[in-house]
Amino acid sequence: MKLNADQKNEVFSLVKQTILYGLSGEPPLEVTSDDEALNQPGACFVTLTLNKQLRGCIGSLQAHEPLIQDIANNAFKAAFQDPRFPPLTEDESEELDIEISILTTPEPMMGCESKQALLEQLVPFEDGLVLSDERHRATYLPSVWKQLPDKEAFVDSLMLKAGMSHWSGTMQCERYYVEAYEAFWSDIE
């Protein structure tokens, strides 16, 4: 889904409001929008960076609630429940860069019987990737290509993230795309 200017303003205002509520001890907001497109089922990731360093990133791979609610929930979780980081503080919030990535539905990739076969299909800076094998599963958004532009390094790092030590014959690969939007905390109304 591509957002128009009004929709972008609405979702970034919602992210800021959600984080401010969280900083005051309030739970995630229950929200709806006057814009029916934002009330349709959707999946997103909310990524918070501070001084160009990851500060929180949580999201949904599958649409399971209205997009507007998914944005609110993931903003709250990225700020306060990402297990890699302590909860966000008020001082940090003033310097946040926020990215909202709206995902297409992940689609299975055929011909992933080997890592080499997957590497031949990947499109850097465009593909989001989900790798799963039995109980191991992890994803990288297309934005991760900025840090890992080499296809093999991208896949190896994702496997490590998922706790996979080697490629297996039961590996499943899914590809998705995103529409990503970015705003600085101080620029959000």
Rank of each mutant, 00 (worst) to 15 (best):
K2I: 11
N4E: 08
N4P: 13
D6K: 02
Q7F: 13
F12E: 06
V15H: 01
V15E: 01
Q17N: 08
Q17C: 01
L23F: 04
S24D: 12
G25Q: 04
P27S: 12
V31A: 05
D35T: 03
D35H: 07
A37S: 12
A37D: 10
L38G: 06
Q40R: 12
F45G: 09
L48R: 03
L50H: 11
K52W: 04
K52E: 13
Q53P: 05
C57N: 05
I58T: 00
I58R: 00
I58W: 02
G59K: 03
Q62V: 13
H64M: 07
L67N: 05
I68T: 04
D70M: 09
N73I: 05
N74L: 09
A75V: 02
K77R: 11
A78T: 02
A79M: 03
Q81T: 06
D82K: 02
F85E: 04
S93Y: 06
E94C: 01
D97G: 13
I100C: 07
E113C: 07
K115Q: 15
K115M: 15
L119C: 07
F125N: 14
D127F: 12
L129A: 08
L131A: 07
L131K: 02
S132V: 02
D133K: 00
H136C: 11
S143F: 09
D150L: 11
A153R: 03
F154R: 02
V155N: 03
S157M: 07
L158Y: 01
M159Q: 10
K161S: 09
A162G: 11
S168G: 15
T170F: 10
E174M: 09
R175A: 10
Y176P: 11
V178S: 08
V178L: 01
E179C: 09
E179H: 15
F184A: 07
E189G: 12
